[in-house]
Design a protein around this nucleic acid. Sequence first.
DNA 1: CATGACAGTGATACTTGGTATCAGTGAGAC
DNA 2: GTCTCACTGATACCAAGTATCACTGTCATG
Lengths: 144, 144
Amino acid sequence: MSELESVIRKLEALDHRITPSRVAVIASVLAQSGHFSVEDVLRQARAVGRATVFRTMRLLTDLDVVCRVLLDDGSLHYRVSRRGHHHHLVCVSCGNARDLDECAVGDLVRELAAATEYEIEGHWLEFYGRCAACRSPVAVAARA
Amino acid sequence: MSELESVIRKLEALDHRITPSRVAVIASVLAQSGHFSVEDVLRQARAVGRATVFRTMRLLTDLDVVCRVLLDDGSLHYRVSRRGHHHHLVCVSCGNARDLDECAVGDLVRELAAATEYEIEGHWLEFYGRCAACRSPVAVAARA
DNA sequence: CATGACAGTGATACTTGGTATCAGTGAGAC
DNA sequence: GTCTCACTGATACCAAGTATCACTGTCATG
Ligand SMILES: [Mn+2]
Ligand SMILES: [Mn+2]
Ligand SMILES: [Zn+2]
Ligand SMILES: [Zn+2]
C-alpha cells in the first residue's frame, strides 16, 4: 500500500470523503521533501481552491499526517510526519529541519502540572540553530 | 526611578531617541496587566501611528523590556518582562499567563548541540493548559 | 541658544496568511 | 439510481504586519 493510499484509508476510517481535491493536496504534500509552506502546495495543486488547501492542511494536521513547524521568522510550515508527537531542530541558515527523537518535555509537563495545578494540554517547542554543514569553513567561504 | 524612566534610560544608553510616540507606547505597555496584543497598545495610544507602534514593540523586545508570548491560537502577544530568558504557561480558558521560573531546556540544548553538531541559537517553548480556577466545578458551573 | 543631520514618524498603500460565505456539486450510503 | 449533505471554490473579507517616503523634531555640536 502506497503512502497515498494509506492516508486515504485514514480519511475513510474517519468518514471523510475522498475527493479529487483532497487527493491532489495529499499527493502534493507527500511529494514535498523537508518542510514546506501552504503556498508550496498551492503552487503544485493549481486546480484546487485556496480555501480547500487550507482546510485539507488542517485535516492532515488533525490526522497526524503532517506536523507543523514554526520557523524562527514566525512563519508556519508543515512536514510529513511519520511518527507521533515530536519536535524539531531547524537550521536557520539552510532551513533543513531534523525531527527530534522524542518529546523532551514530558517529565517537565508532569512536574509543572503538579507545581502549578494547571492541567497542561499542550506545548510548542522548536529549536533553532546552524547545522554542521552551514558552520563548516567551506560553507562559510562559499557564502562570502 | 520609575519603571518608565528606567526604560527611557535603556533607550538613551543605546542611542535611541526619546520621542513622544515612544514614550506613549512605553507608558501604555507598562500599564498593561498580563499579556496583551499590539492592538491593545494601539487602542490606548491612539495618537501614535500603527507602524510606529509595531516598530517600538520590536525595539522593546530587543531591549528585553517585553517578552513575546505565542498563544495557542497562533496569535502573538507581549508581556512586560522583569527578568531574563524564561517561558510561559498560558491558560487556554481565561488567558492568564504565568512566567516559569527558569528556562527548563538549557541542559537539553547542550545535549542536543553535542548529539547533532548544530550550534543552537534559540528556541520557542510555550505551555498551554487550564488553570486551577478554570477547572474548578464552580467555574465550570458558572460557564454553563 | 542656534542649527543642521539624520533618526524617527505616520499616512497610505501594500502584502501575507489566512477565514466566512454561499450557491453549486459529486461522494457514497441506501 | 437516487438522495443527502459533506465538500468545493470563487469571492470577498480580515488580521497582522511591512514598504515607502515626505515631513518633523531630537539632540550633538559649536
Ligand atoms: Mn516533524
Ligand atoms: Mn514572560
Ligand atoms: Zn544548515
Ligand atoms: Zn485560567
